[in-house]
Amino acid sequence: MDLVLDDIGVVYRRGGYETRAVRGVSLHIRKGETLAIVGESGSGKTTIAKVAAGLQKATSGSLAWRSTPYGAPEGARGTGSRRVQMVFQHPVQSLDPLWRIRRAVQEPLWHGGASRREADARAAELITQVGLDPSVLDRYPRQISGGQAQRVAIARALIAKPEIVILDEPTASLDQTVRARILTLLAELQAGTGVGYLMITHDISSVRRLATRIAVMYHGLIVESGPASAVLDAPRHPYTRALIAAVPIADPRVPWNGAEHVARHRAGILAQAPCPVESSPCRDHGTGLHQVGSEHLVACTAAA
């Protein structure tokens, strides 16, 4: 348990309205593994990523790095934050357009007091590790492609030797062939450095090759979590099932009717009582998670 989020709640207040974006989420990430948080827009997954990165205060709950609290709720960035780095969804926009790639990649080292020579050597090493030519270091963000920019962002995230990297939709804005290469690169870097990933994605089909564990979020709650194979191959929560069934199968010979599945699972959610998401006791308070297998938890009393 390297990074632990305990009972995190986030409430956004705007114009007299309160939105409970995250409602009592607990999770942990170990070095060397990948926890994928899967959810649709509005599920609270990006808010969780920001809290874990120390970019956003939690309204309630606590964060700890190896039992040392940091971050929320005071927002003080302590020992944990240097060990946690982040890669954002839009790679080109996440780089300063006025900075050469070299400066962007080296920036995390400045806070550690590295010499210029060390920083140069390390930047060249990292840029090669992510599969780019060192000449890229002399270019500006607008002079490189989206796939190259995401490799740069990964190099930048890894240069200060973090223990956890948060990947917020790291491949969502990339082409399919580039996406596959970036996922392969992330897996290789993890094998080489032992870094842990917290990966945020809306695309459950993209997590199979990288995720060790999966947590499925819906309306600010974790509704199912467990080993990737258990969640993908034997999903228990009606929402997880709908999410998986809704992905179009890339084979015209395999019949698929995603809309029917989604409708059926939604009907299933409504029919099961007490239900964690659609019936009012669950929607308002949650039911807690029930164990259905080794480390496999489901917030659904009907499924448990």
């Binding site: 596959a180 996922l183 089909s205 090759r209 191959d233």
Partner: peptide, 14 residues
């Protein structure tokens, strides 16, 4: 062929 190869694996459970 490259496009097909890069198509990410699908979860098997339907």
């Amino acid at each position: 062929e490259e496009l097909l190869a890069s198509t990410l694996e699908q979860p098997s459970e339907r």
